Simulated scan of single mutants.
Amino acid sequence: MRPVCLLTGAGGLFGQAFVARCAAEYRIVAVHGRTPVNRASQNQTFVDPLNPGGRLALNDDPVHTIRADLSRADEIERVVDETLNEFGQVDLLINAAARRHWAPLLAPGAIASASEVFDVNLLAPLRMSVEVARRCWLADPAGNLAANRSVVQLSSTAGLYVYPDLGQALYGTSKAGLNHLTYHLASEFWDLGVRVNALAPDTFPGRVATQDVIDGVLDLARSDVTGRIVDLTADGG
């Protein structure tokens, strides 16, 4: 049976592309915010008005979609509850949800946005990883190893380098925190038989192709490494 992938940020650029490419490989729980997932769910099908009886690829391998506000701890608990009620397990957790409020720190409203940026970019991956580990992985280290279960964080090169005068202080700091959190989760989840890594791509699709980002996430998910931050830059690094 296909492994279960719990994916946050499924309504974003990476999430939509990942669902389109990987729905046949994983049973995907696609967690999104205001933007819906462009894929059929268990309770939804798409119809071509010009060919009502024809096949649409969007209806192949439907995903389980959940709308949630990941800045709230109770919403993360609800997501895990619904995932376990539907599938009973999580094999791969991809924390891809992000807030990108870019502005100089002295700009009006910049500091007011800090809580939301850190809640989604740092606290949500922390809460989701711990909740899944506690509910799904804590009691079965041998099974986790056998299934090669892991967490992949979608970070950014903004968490590795300072890009001056782009207003990335809050975003970059949140991603730097996510990178360091990845190291700590990898250490603490080691005894659970669960790997934790992060991919830090440059801007996509402008400087890095979205499909290259998906390749990087899948490479980490299929590997045997843990505690690694992979820098994915425009030159292929």
Rank of each mutant, 00 (worst) to 15 (best):
P52Y: 12
G53N: 14
R55I: 10
A57Q: 14
D60G: 03
V63F: 10
H64R: 15
T65H: 04
R67D: 10
S71T: 13
S71G: 15
I76R: 06
I76M: 09
E77G: 13
V79M: 10
V80H: 10
E82P: 00
T83R: 10
E86H: 14
F87P: 00
F87G: 05
Q89H: 11
V90G: 02
V90F: 01
L93D: 02
L93S: 04
I94M: 04
I94Y: 00
N95T: 09
A97I: 03
A97K: 04
R100T: 06
W102F: 13
P104D: 10
L105T: 14
L105F: 12
L106M: 09
A107V: 02
A107G: 00
P108N: 11
F118V: 06
L126W: 12
R127Q: 14
M128V: 07
M128G: 04
S129F: 01
S129H: 02
S129A: 15
S129W: 00
A133M: 01
A133I: 01
A133Q: 03
R135V: 00
R135K: 09
R135Q: 03
W137G: 11
G143C: 03
A147N: 10
A147G: 08
N148Q: 13
R149A: 12
S150I: 02
V151Q: 05
V152Q: 07
Q153T: 04
Q153R: 01
S155C: 07
A158F: 07
G159T: 05
G159S: 05
